[in-house]
Amino acid sequence: MEHYNMNLTVKVWRQKNSRAQGNFENYSVKNISSEMSFLEMIDVLNEELIVEGKEPIAFDHDCREGICGQCSMYINGKPHGPWQANTTCQLHMRAFKDGDTIVVEPWRSAAFPVIKDLMVDRSAFDRIVQAGGFISVNTGNAVDGNSLPINKDAADASFAAAMCIGCGACVAACKNSSAMLFLSAKVAHLALLPQGEPERKSRVMNMVAQMDKEGFGACTNTGACEATCPKEISISNIARLNHEYLRASLTAEK
């Protein structure tokens, strides 16, 4: 792939803290290599801001290899930027051309309040997982891996759901700020496996209750979540979640 350098205008949301009024600031960055990642471009911009004595842009990032779910920028009208099945950290500057203006916003949802600039508080997801996204296993010797037969199709579907990295792009993309794709991935991941069976009904009831408490919107099946998910979690998981919830509501012991 041909390498090139570019000059860009980056329009970034700046907000001092969760209570402050935010606004967009324009920055120009020069000589950005097409081989840089998007976060490296922000790093370059931040270094310049620090040299100028200005406050650098706060943003979440950790592994920078597309598996941790920390990076969370809404770039040019799409969570994680223009590429498909991709995280912000894996977005490379070759996605842009010289002279482009790039608009960078934080995830927008009442359940994800802005902490600072592009960082949002996604602890609502942690509380949803704490409400039921686990299995209870007694301590002791590890069981032989092959002693528990699991249907191959179910194992594959469970693994596909387990790919969710909890980044919150689904919430950011959804016009209702619904967390149903995230929740459905967590529920489907465990509901499909024998290990998840003992807590299957209470899990879905408790996790849905927690999701509602956190202030996410309701799903209307628009499909925006699936289209933007960096891990391509299928929206069919949401229908599976609805099925699990209906089943649990009708047949739960209490």
């Binding site: 329009k11 935010g22 967009f24 809404y74 040019n76 009208g77 799409k78 969570p79 608009v103 916003e105 927008r108 949802s109 009442a110 359940a111 950011a172 993309a173 016009k175 209702n176 700020s177 619904s178 202030g215 996410f216 919107g217 628009t222 499909g223 925006a224 979540c225 699936e226 289209a227 933007t228």
Partner: peptide
């Protein structure tokens, strides 16, 4: 009510 601050560039391509 679930998004009190909207996006400058709305996401329309996915749906």
């Amino acid at each position: 009510k679930r998004r009190n601050v909207g996006y400058a560039v709305p996401y329309t391509a996915g749906s």
